[in-house]
Design a protein around this nucleic acid. Structure first.
Length: 765
DNA sequence: CAGGGACAAAATGAA
DNA sequence: TTTGTCCCTG
């Protein structure tokens, strides 16, 4: 009996269609991962295909690992020979394998967003750009767009025509590319674009892979961009067994170049393609599915399909209006406490989804208070922490000494007294002699302008790097990490700082080194190169420790491909979801809203049994309150799918109608009252031996922040009614969160020299 | 060159 | 509320 017997008829059809191009249009929850794994298992076990001849592209590394495991479960260890990975990791691998043929240095660095920006800043300096509305960031974005469209600098320049602005961008693009080349570095976009280009220029190399990959699979095809599309085409040109799986309704990465046409036009690109639709949903209840179907039916740009299920009607969807974002968080946490208590669910059954990472803060605070177990996917990314990036940059520099961006990042961390001025001299020398910065600091004596002190310090740095470089070959990975930590002086720097934060950073680095040990133990080829590459290409999902028994918090984007019995979608508000930018754009182009709508569709279809949609009347943005309107997407769900709408408000309901804004119109969007400045500032109060400030105004409904404040020994606070305050190095900002009347008095300790206080005076309703 | 303070700007999402 | 940059002083 075939293993495909375990699939439903449509799924079986999809998995059994192994010859020629195949498009599997798989709705949410229709079991597409299952189809893919069974298809691959079927190829190996029943069609005697060598695993080595199979390629599978997934969306994250985590998904890759899971797919390999599932296939292995079906066919055994030979599954190890399948090429499974993300586009980026596969490309990085190809570029290194074929480096010699491609004329590349295989030790290239992979630049992330930060590195890219740093590189662009250098280009800005070289071009003396002071234009206010031209930022490295915006230029990078344009370059990235160009790359994703496979437009190289020369073509870009040609297309620029007479537009001065475009011409300038073209120049910057050219310079940026040259810089990266010099640094022996590739950015994320390059990994894809470079692979496609190299294959174009080296058909014989491409041929090898075309022969090799008898069967290729691409998951989440709706989110492929131009170079990824080309790569699929290139690799499968010989055997033509390309199987793509996707759902046009779940395309949510247009902002990074994903092109919906790739999936919409698949049948046109491959006229002999077979198309299989998977429309039976095995995940959600009827009501949840209905809500999703209704919402997505408002989109025009889609192939059109109707998901159905023969599952239960299920619970009604909870629609909850909350007074503030804090109240929203409280509601979510209260509900979760019930669901995981008497409700019989486990914390791991629930996910809290939101549009922007910033929203996680309020939720996290409440969760922390509740003691419920939770994990946040990707908000403070481990590998983007300063100390981790510094350490990784040292390692990167060891692997690739041409990496100027890396060298600039670490040469003066910890402080070695090597400042910008000295570095400029080195830079000049490097430029004049066609050297990398690292090579340049090997010729200190021929560098003009450097003073002896700087020379000495640079020599020390170089010496450290040389020594580390010497042990690199003989030392194990983790050992090298430890050596870098110690020899660079980084550890000492943290110890000297002698603060809890520094302590934390030290622990983080230790965690990194522990991961290096694990990496060596679990990989066959645990080179520094591979280690750096794996980390560079990690997604937030990959970074998160799988914690099966914790509530998961993440962005809607991160939730793609996952499912939970319970799903909360928070912040269902105009200008947040859809985002303000999208709302703005949609005024001119109504289609612009469609990607957000798909994102909403993705969110809803994550839910198996219970779905909660929450929105607020007001929420914090940049530290002040803004008013909010319910998201248009909520109106696209038929009322009968909802429970009676609930409203949760902060206490003190007597003074207000539930759900009604506390403020009158004039005070709402911060409009100013003539003659009475909205914000009053008191700055620079000298503080010889402690200062006492008092404000006295009527009453204020919320907050007891002072319990936090009193613990700081630097100052003492008395009173109540203050919602928010913060303090930094000798600087304290206190303001009332609601913009209403407040009463506050704070006494500062003697060594606080200056105080800046800002508070809002708003008109009460 | 380093450290601090004042001030401005920011955050959509992510390999 | 947080982060980055510019300018000043020792």
């Amino acid at each position: 009996m075939s293993i495909l017997e375990q699939l439903n008829p449509d799924q079986r059809k999809a998995a059994a269609a192994t010859q020629g191009p195949v498009l599997i249009l798989a709705g949410a929850g229709s079991g597409k991962t299952r189809v893919l794994t069974y298809r691959i298992a079927h190829l190996i076990q029943e069609q005697c295909v060598t695993p080595w001849n199979i390629l599978a592209v997934t969306f994250t590394n985590k998904a890759a690992g899971e797919m390999r495991e599932r296939v292995e479960h079906l066919v055994g260890e030979i599954a190890n020979d399948i090429w499974i990975g993300t586009f980026h990791s596969i490309c990085a691998r190809l570029l290194r394998y074929e480096a010699e043929h491609f004329g590349l240095d295989r030790s290239f660095s992979i630049y992330d967003e930060d590195d890219r920006r740093a590189a662009m800043r250098r280009v800005f300096e070289a071009y003396n750009i002071n234009d206010k509305d031209l930022t490295p960031r915006s230029v990078i974005a344009q370059i990235s767009r160009a790359k994703n469209a496979m437009v190289d600098p020369m073509t870009f320049a040609t297309e620029a025509g007479e537009s001065a602005n475009k011409k300038l961008i073209a120049d910057l693009y050219t310079a940026y590319e040259a810089d990266l080349r010099r640094n022996n570095a590739l950015d994320f976009d390059d990994l894809l674009v470079e692979t496609v280009r190299q294959f174009d220029n080296h058909p014989s190399v491409l041929e090898k892979y075309q022969q090799r990959f008898h069967y290729a699979h691409v998951d989440e095809y709706q989110d492929t961009n131009r170079p990824q599309y080309m790569l699929c085409k290139q690799l499968t040109a010989h055997h033509r067994n390309l199987c793509v799986v996707g759902d046009d309704d779940q395309s949510i990465y247009q902002f990074r170049g994903a092109d919906l046409r790739n999936i919409l036009d698949f049948e046109r690109d491959y006229p002999d393609a077979q198309t299989v639709r998977l429309e039976q949903n095995y995940r959600s209840t009827k009501r949840i599915l209905e809500a999703a179907n209704q919402i997505i039916s408002n989109n025009k740009d889609r192939k059109g399909k109707a998901l159905w299920t023969d599952g239960d009607e299920g619970h009604l969807i909870e629609l909850v209006q909350c007074d503030t974002d804090r109240r929203e968080a409280k509601f979510v946490v209260e509900s979760l406490r019930q669901l995981t208590g008497s409700g019989g669910y486990a914390p791991g059954d629930a996910a809290i989804l939101y549009r922007t990472n910033a929203q996680s803060r309020a939720l996290e605070e409440e969760l922390q208070r509740s003691g419920l177990r939770y994990v946040i996917v990707g908000s403070i990314r481990f590998y983007e922490r300063r100390e981790i990036k510094d350490m990784l940059t040292y390692l990167r520099l060891l692997a690739n000494p041409s990496d100027d961006v890396g060298l600039r990042r670490v040469i003066n961390v910890p402080r070695r007294g090597i400042g910008d001025t000295s570095l400029d001299y080195v830079q000049r020398h490097a430029l004049n002699n066609g050297l990398s910065l690292y090579a340049a600091i090997g010729q200190l004596d021929s560098i003009e302008g450097l003073n002896t002190r700087a020379k000495k310090q640079i020599a020390i740095f170089r010496c450290i790097m040389e020594e580390l470089s010497a042990v690199r070959k003989s030392a194990g990975l983790a050992e090298l990490g430890q050596l870098v930590f110690e020899q660079s002086g980084y550890l000492q720097m943290l110890r000297d700082e002698n603060s809890p934060e520094a302590q934390m950073r030290e622990e983080n680095v230790e965690q990194l080194i522990a991961f290096m040990t694990e990496f060596s133990d679990t990989r066959e080829e645990a080179t520094l190169q591979k280690f750096l590459e794996e980390i560079a290409l990690m997604s937030p999902m990959d970074e998160t420790e799988g914690n099966g028994n914790a509530i998961t918090l993440m962005t809607l984007h991160s939730a793609k491909g996952l499912e939970y019995p319970i799903v909360f979608m928070c912040g269902m508000e105009e200008n947040l979801f859809p985002t303000a930018r999208t709302v703005e754009e949609s005024r001119l182009n109504p289609q612009a809203i469609e990607e957000e709508r798909r994102l909403c569709y993705v969110g809803i279809t994550r839910a198996r049994e219970r779905l909660y949609l929450t929105y607020t009347n007001r929420r914090y943005a940049y530290g002040n309150m803004i008013d909010c309107e319910p998201s248009r997407f909520l109106q696209e769900i038929p009322d009968e799918l909802f429970t009676v709408k609930r409203e949760v408000v902060d206490f003190n309901p007597r003074t207000r109608q539930p759900g009604q804004s506390r403020f009158n119109k004039t005070s709402q969007r911060g409009s100013q009252q003539p003659g009475s400045p909205r914000r009053k500032k008191i700055v620079e109060k000298k503080n010889p031996k402690g200062v006492h400030y008092d404000w006295d105004t009527p009453q204020h409904p919320t907050g007891d922040l002072f319990s936090d404040l009193v613990d700081q020994d630097d100052f003492l606070a008395v009173g109540q009614w203050v919602r928010h305050a913060s303090w930094g190095k000798g600087q304290i900002v206190a303001r009332d969160g609601q913009g209403e009347n407040m009463k506050l008095s704070i006494r500062f300790g003697p060594h606080v020299k200056k105080v800046a206080v800002a508070f809002a005076q708003l008109e009460p309703a």
